[in-house]
């Protein structure tokens, strides 16, 4: 699984291109649990047609395995990525 890291307090944007006919249903999951859209989780299709998950103001507990699962009548597949939220860089005092 590919790994990515973001700094605490920043947003993490996940983009996944999906094909399939009929148009697949997309579910984003974190550590196996489906993610609902909410104040810190934006779910949308961007202008280029990528399915996008945005985790706002990342916290340490946002670290984990993120999965984009697509399914239609012919089958299902998924892509996954591991996100690590790093402690923020120490500010110059």
């Amino acid at each position: 699984v590919k790994k990515f890291a973001v700094s605490e307090g920043k947003h993490a944007k996940f983009r996944c291109f999906v094909t399939g006919k009929p148009k697949p249903e997309i579910i984003w999951k974190k550590d196996g649990a489906p993610l609902e859209a909410g104040r810190r989780h934006l779910l949308f299709e961007d202008r280029e047609g990528y399915y996008t998950l945005k985790v706002m103001y990342c916290k340490h507990q946002d670290t984990g395995l993120y999965v984009c699962a697509a399914s239609n009548a012919l089958g299902h597949t998924l892509s996954s990525v591991y996100l690590t939220v790093k402690a923020p860089a120490v500010r110059f005092r």
């Binding site: 993490a12 983009r15 892509s79």
Partner: peptide, 20 residues
């Protein structure tokens, strides 16, 4: 039943960090 259909395919997930 399957004319013009295809199973789903998902590309690699790209992650980017964004400034609030």
């Amino acid at each position: 039943r399957m004319r013009g259909t295809s199973a789903p395919w998902t590309g690699q997930i790209i992650v980017t960090e964004e400034e609030p």
